[in-house]
Design a protein around this nucleic acid. Structure first.
Lengths: 116, 116
DNA sequence: CAAATATACATAAGTTATTTATGTATAAGC
DNA sequence: GCTTATACATAAATAACTTATGTATATTTG
């Protein structure tokens, strides 16, 4: 049986922000580790977000005012929940729309059928 | 009227190789400048390949044995035509398949309809 | 109950791939 | 004649990620 491996990193690069914004626009509040697990689960491990990529990006999004954070104590450990701001919601819509448009263009370029 | 600008470079990054391999698998022989123009035309200027990105990649593909080259004199100018090797044809199919698969996964992740 | 794995954050060095800038030169259009 | 288009090439700077490392608690498994 064929097991589809992870996509080449060059392909995944650049979609990270869009994916995170989408998840946050669906779930309101998520913490970093939760995001990595959700993406892994939804993509059957074809997209795996590493911590080194995720955390710096989340910090950047916070600095830009796209998300706000709330730190919660879970026993003696901490969790940092991220929530989209209004700006963040708009940004999420834009990025998702852009990607949908991009897919259309790539479908034409690569002669893929719309349903593929 | 809304004019869709170029996609963010982060989105385009990583699809360059796939796009070039696809064009070469369709047209057999193309030269660098021709590739940039074809992509610009097919994507309505939403994807524009810069020379600084294109030529190093073509040279790399040649070094890997994915393409062979033939230099032709056009008047006093030169053109360097690129042709896929057999390895190159396989590579092209793989990359195109990988991207099609990637799109499917992203459609699920981003809740896009298959036809979008 | 000890060890391994999972949860949960964070950052820094190294790598890779692009962008931007620069360079050379001929051909075509105005 | 000047500007734009054709046509190649490379190098420095930048951006973004991978890999590695660090800290620490919680849970599972043998």
């Amino acid at each position: 049986m064929y097991i589809c491996p992870m996509y080449s990193s060059e392909l995944i690069k650049g979609t990270l922000k869009t994916v995170i914004l989408k998840l946050l626009s669906d779930t309101k509040q998520m913490y970093g580790y939760e995001i990595t697990q959700k993406v892994k689960e939804l993509t059957d491990s074809k997209i795996v977000i590493t911590e080194g990529a995720l955390y710096p990006l989340l910090h950047q999004l916070e600095a830009e005012g796209v998300v706000t954070t709330e730190t919660v104590n879970i026993g003696k450990r901490i969790r940092k929940y991220y929530t989209l701001t209004q700006t963040g919601n708009e940004r999420a819509k834009e990025k998702i729309y852009e990607f949908a448009d991009f897919i259309q263009t790539m479908n034409i370029l690569l002669d893929l059928k719309p349903s593929v």
